[in-house]
């Protein structure tokens, strides 16, 4: 069945991989982000792959006034509405330490911006009695670490938001999948030291679609991150606070 997907942060390589798979299945995709030139190229790619509709739309997590026009466009579409949220920003923790104002932007991009958008979308989904929200969080949100705890805390907030939204949308026939990717082979991780077991974005996208189909609640991708994070979460705080992992 053809459905409509809004993809926030559509220029990321994970989002690109997901949008392609959706396009090849004939769905309508709205590709939202800031780089309109790149989004238009992505829309053309999706059209050529078989999307029933592919459109670039302007979305800026820090500019909530950009949200309403997108929601109006979505409301015009018939059938189920779905959303996949890939937005987020991860400045160097050292840069944040030097300029604490960066905290606000990181949290807006990774948590409050997309949360506000989803908050506006939720009634529409409830009206139509279903649909799926895919929220991409991060393993970094499972525990605050020296290296990226501002980004991690924003993602932790987003995880909690998604959990609540799942509670709400389930009642209306909808569903929410929280996705926690480990290291993924994207522009964000290219050339960064200390990366291991890096997954290709196509693998993450395939895992996401499987989770949507099976109505999973929280997935780690690749799956073994669940075990890695179980170990990391189980380290007692008196020890953890002295570690730099």
């Amino acid at each position: 069945m053809q459905e409509t997907w809004i993809i926030l942060g559509a220029t990321s390589s994970m989002a690109r991989a997901l949008s392609r798979k959706l396009a090849e299945d004939g769905h309508a995709v709205f590709l939202a982000g800031r780089d309109m030139d790149d989004l238009r190229r992505q829309a053309a790619d999706c059209t050529a792959r078989g999307a029933s509709l592919a459109e670039a739309v302007k979305f800026d997590a820090r500019a909530p006034e950009s949200f309403a026009p997108i929601l109006d466009r979505l409301a015009d579409q018939e059938g189920m509405l779905n959303a996949a949220v890939f937005v987020g920003s991860m400045p160097d923790q050292a840069d944040i330490d030097a300029d604490p104002a960066l905290v606000d932007g990181t949290i807006t991009d990774s948590f409050t911006g997309p949360a506000r958008f989803l908050q506006m979308l939720a009634p529409l989904m409830e009206q139509r009695g279903g649909g799926t929200v895919v929220g991409v969080g991060s393993v970094a949100g499972d525990r605050g670490r020296l290296g990226n705890y501002v980004y991690g805390s924003a993602k932790a907030g987003f995880h909690t938001y998604l959990s609540g939204l799942r509670n709400r949308l389930t009642r209306a026939g909808g569903h929410v999948v929280t996705v926690k990717p480990g290291f993924t082979d994207t522009a964000m991780t290219w050339g960064i030291e200390g990366m291991f077991l890096v997954a290709p974005p196509e693998k993450v996208a395939a895992d996401i679609l499987r989770a949507v189909e099976k109505k999973k609640n929280v997935i780690y991708t690749p799956f073994f991150w669940r075990y890695i994070m179980t170990i990391i979460r189980s380290i007692p705080e008196p020890i953890f606070k002295k570690l730099s992992i």
Partner: peptide, 8 residues
């Protein structure tokens, strides 16, 4: 090596 994801 660089691996751009956008033409820009």
């Amino acid at each position: 090596l660089a691996r751009p994801e956008r033409i820009s």
